[in-house]
Structure formats: structure tokens, C-alpha cells
Nucleic acid binder design. Structure first.
Lengths: 141, 141
DNA sequence: TCCTAATTAAGAATTATTCCTATTTAGTAA
DNA sequence: TTACTAAATAGGAATAATTCTTAATTAGGA
């Protein structure tokens, strides 16, 4: 099921289905919380020791180009990846590296209406992402 | 006037006022549009050729720690800096590297009210930043 | 003016990423 | 099934960015 989805994703993007690409997709699916490049490298190398590191970099680049994954904007110096393409916002924990997805259609509507009414001079709005900074209650991860 | 402000900033943060730090602050003030580390290095080295590169890195790190500047989130792999600490959002150009500040109190109020009413489970909101993605009309920079 | 902890210069060391090229492989068509 | 070809990969060298180390210098206070 999951493997089939991967096949479909790759084929839709006119990418050949290779074991290396499957391995990177597997990593993206199994690593939660917006993995860093290092997280992904580690996972892939662990599970598929014969895959070259350069290939992982190249594969990620290809996926970003094709829109299969997105890069997450972050305050730290490391890049993170997001396997979910649907429109969503991010919750950033002040105390940890945790980043969670946040879906809220009501909020999206409100923002859309707001920016339809209130134009920004010389700027055409195409998309809006919220970075909601705060702290998670309870479990410290 | 500007120099005095720098002095005040540094002293308030319990940092010694050194020529190296003044030079980095000068760069941050003169370079518009959220300079990259490279922009800053280039500016400082050009105007003060005897300042070591390592010192520039260390100084920027110190400033971020003390809250004198902030890092800007970016999709690309490069970090950018923001000398403005006041609360504001960012306009990202899809077609160029341009990032502009965006101030809007009405928007801030609307968001504050929204998140006061609509709680996010297990999360305490402290701050909200918008990444407004789109294109600038007219001048291509 | 002197003292001391903080800061810096200089360049070596480390780390992450990109680049290069020969080899291999996925997909296609006969 | 086999053969073909463009695309993809392995492996490691090369590059680039950043951090680290240590001796020398300096800012700020007594």
C-alpha cells in the first residue's frame, strides 16, 4: 500500500522508480517531526548501507524540484523537510526542536478574506504560512 | 547618533564595545533586505580588512544570543539576519531572493483575538509570524 | 596607570555538500 | 524475453562553509 503510493508519486513526476528513491521516501514517511538532512541520511544509510550519500542529497533535491517534499523554513541553521504537501502551518516549540503541522481551514479563510480586502502595496499575495511559536504542554520530547 | 545607538545596544547587553562589533553592527544597519552571512562578511572585510572572518561568525552568534539581531527563516539553505527586533512579518518574493518586512497592527490584533478564542490543544501560543509568499509588482530586484 | 577577564587574529581542522566520471539500471520497444 | 538508451548511481575527490585552538591584544574597571 505504502510502496504503491510511492510508485505512483514517482511515476506521476516522471521519475524512475529506483531502490534509492524508495529508500528516501521510506525515510521521509517513517521519520516524523520534519527530519533534517542528517536524519534522513542516517536512516537511509542504516537501512540500506550500500546507498551512496551523494545519491541521497541528489534524490532530496530532485524531490524538492518535483514538489514531492517541501523544505521547512526554520530559525536554526539546519534545513528540514516536510513530506506533507497539503496546505498547513507549523507549530514551533521554543524549548525543543519539535515542529508540528497545524491544519485550520477557518484560519485560512479568515486570512484569505483579510488579504483580499487589505491589499499590500506593490505585492501580490500567493500563499501565507504561519509560524506559530510557543510551547507544548505536558510531554517534553 | 547611529554610533551612539550601537554603544547603547552593546552596553545594555553587557558586551564590550569593540571595533569588530561596531563593524558588524554597521554592516547590519547598512545592508538592507536581510543580509546573508556572506553579505555581512563581505561588507565587514571590505571596510575593515584587518578583522578576522572567525570573529565575524562569533560576533553574529553573540548578537543572536543576546537578541540584538534575529535569524530569518528561509527556504533556501542560507541563513539571513534581521536587524529589526520589533514585531513584524515577512514578504517573500517567489521570483527573487527579496525579503521585505511587513508591519500590520490590525492583522496582529485579529490573530491575537482568533487564537485567544480558538485554542490549540496542548500548545501555548507565544508569538505568530507570517510568511507571506508572492511577487512584487513593478521593479524586479 | 595597571590589572584581568573578555575578545580577537590567524590559520588549522572539521564538517557538510557538491562535483566528476565510469558503471549500472529502469523503462521501453521490438 | 532481449536489447537498447537515457537516466540514475557509486565512490571518492574537491570545494565551501563554519568551527576550533591558542597566543596575543584590548576594553573597562579599580
Amino acid at each position: 500500500m505504502k510502496k504503491e503510493n510511492h510508485n505512483i508519486n514517482l511515476k506521476n513526476s516522471n521519475l524512475k522508480v529506483t531502490p534509492q528513491r524508495m529508500a528516501v521516501l521510506e525515510a521521509l514517511n517513517n521519520l516524523k517531526n520534519h527530519p533534517t538532512t542528517e536524519n534522513i541520511k542516517e536512516y537511509v544509510v542504516k537501512n540500506h548501507p550500500n546507498i551512496a550519500v551523494g545519491t541521497i542529497y541528489k534524490t532530496l533535491e530532485t524531490f524538492v524540484e518535483k514538489g514531492l517534499v517541501k523544505k521547512v523554513k526554520t530559525e536554526k541553521d539546519v534545513m528540514r523537510y516536510d513530506a506533507i504537501i497539503e496546505n498547513h502551518h507549523h507549530l514551533y516549540c521554543e524549548d525543543s526542536e519539535r515542529i508540528e503541522d497545524f491544519f485550520d481551514d477557518e484560519l485560512n479563510n479568515m486570512l484569505e478574506i483579510y488579504f483580499k480586502k487589505k491589499k499590500i502595496p506593490n505585492f501580490k499575495v500567493k500563499d501565507i504560512k504561519l509560524q506559530i511559536i510557543g510551547t507544548f504542554k505536558g510531554n517534553k520530547s
